[in-house]
C-alpha cells in the first residue's frame, strides 16, 4: 500500500548504498528531483539502470553515486554527449564506472520480464552485433516450437524503481499520461517503488492514454511539484531546452561541475516540499 512521504524521507527509507536503482522516464516525466535527493544523501556504489541515461544520470555519475550503469543510450538528447559519463568510462573519474549495455528493445524487454515475474524475455534482436560479446545478460534461446534462434535477455528487477507522474490521489493511486515510456514496467519490476507527482488531487480523472498505478502496486508517493524539471510534465510545464544546452558547458569541466554540485545540490535547500 503506497504511503505518502516527503521526498527526502522516501529516498532515505527506500534507497540504500549498493542498491540497484532505476529512475526511468523517456524524455518526459524524468524523476530529476528524486535523482538530486539521492545525490544530496550521498548514496554510493549504486547500480543505476535507465534506458536513456541523460542529464540527471550524468549528475549522479559525476557526483560519484554509481559504480555501474545498465543502459541502452547515454546522451544529452538534442545536444550531444554526456561528459561526466564519458569521463567516468574513459578516465574513471570520480570513480570507475562499470557498464552493462543493451539496445532499447533489449532493455524494454528486460523490464517487461521483470514486471512479469519471468526470468528472461525473448526478442528478435542483437543478431550480428558486437553487443552480446560484451554483455552477459544477452544470450540466445531456441524456440521450442520452430527451432528458430532468438535473443534472450535476463529480467531486470531493480531494488528500487523511481518514476515521476502527473497526479496521485489522497489514497496514493497514481496517474500519468503522454509519453509514459517504460515506467509502468519499472514500478512493477522493482522490489520497492517511489513515485514523485506534480500534485495530489481529490480524485483521478481518467485521461486518454492514461496509465494508472493502483496504490497497492506502489511503495511510496511524494508530492514534488516541478520534480521532472528540466524535462517536462505534459499538462504542467514544458521541457527546458536551455538547461540541456547549458549542461553541456557545465559538465565538460570537472571544476565547473564540482561548483554546480556544491551550490545547486549539496549546499542547496532540501528538496521542495
Amino acid at each position: 500500500m503506497s504511503r505518502t512521504r516527503q521526498l527526502d524521507e522516501a529516498v532515505a527509507e527506500l534507497v540504500g548504498d549498493g542498491d540497484v536503482v532505476a529512475l526511468e522516464g523517456f524524455t518526459h516525466l524524468i524523476p530529476v528531483a528524486a535523482g538530486h535527493e539521492i545525490i544530496r544523501q550521498r548514496r554510493r556504489d549504486l547500480t543505476l539502470c535507465r534506458m536513456t541515461p541523460d542529464v540527471v544520470y550524468d549528475q549522479l555519475i559525476g557526483a560519484g553515486c554509481a559504480s555501474k550503469l545498465v543502459f541502452s543510450w547515454g546522451g544529452n538528447p538534442g545536444v550531444g554527449s554526456l561528459h561526466r559519463f564519458r569521463d567516468a568510462i574513459q578516465r574513471s573519474w570520480p570513480v570507475p564506472l562499470e557498464i552493462e549495455e543493451h539496445s532499447h528493445a533489449g532493455m524494454a524487454n528486460r523490464y517487461v520480464a521483470g514486471a512479469s515475474g519471468l526470468p528472461f524475455a525473448v526478442l528478435r534482436g542483437y543478431t550480428g552485433t558486437d553487443l552480446p560479446k560484451h554483455t552477459d545478460s544477452i544470450k540466445t534461446v531456441s524456440c521450442p516450437f520452430t527451432g528458430e534462434e532468438l535473443a534472450a535477455v535476463s529480467a531486470l528487477n531493480p531494488d528500487v524503481g523511481i518514476i515521476h507522474a502527473q497526479q496521485a490521489d489522497k489514497q496514493g493511486n497514481v496517474q500519468m499520461w503522454g509519453i509514459t515510456g517504460v515506467q509502468k514496467e519499472t514500478v512493477l519490476a522493482a522490489k520497492r517503488s517511489l513515485v514523485t507527482v506534480e500534485e495530489t488531487v481529490d480524485e483521478l480523472v481518467p485521461r486518454p492514454g492514461g496509465v494508472v498505478l493502483p496504490k497497492w502496486a506502489v511503495t511510496a508517493v511524494a508530492e514534488v511539484p516541478g520534480g521532472a524539471r528540466p524535462s517536462y510534465a505534459q499538462g504542467y510545464y514544458e521541457r527546458d531546452n536551455d538547461y540541456y544546452q547549458q549542461w553541456d558547458l557545465i559538465s565538460r569541466d570537472r571544476e565547473k561541475f564540482q561548483q554546480w554540485l556544491d551550490t545547486e545540490i549539496l549546499d542547496a535547500e532540501r528538496s521542495p516540499r
Binding site: T52, F71, S72, W73, G74, G75, S81, L82, F85, R86, I89, Q90, E101, H102, S103, H104, A105, L123, R124, G125, Y126, T129, L131
Partner: peptide, 14 residues
C-alpha cells in the same frame, strides 16, 4: 578502454 565513448545503440540494432 575506448578513446571516445559514444551514446550507444538506442533503438538502432532492431
Amino acid at each position: 578502454d575506448p578513446k571516445v565513448r559514444l551514446p550507444g545503440a538506442g533503438g538502432a540494432p532492431e
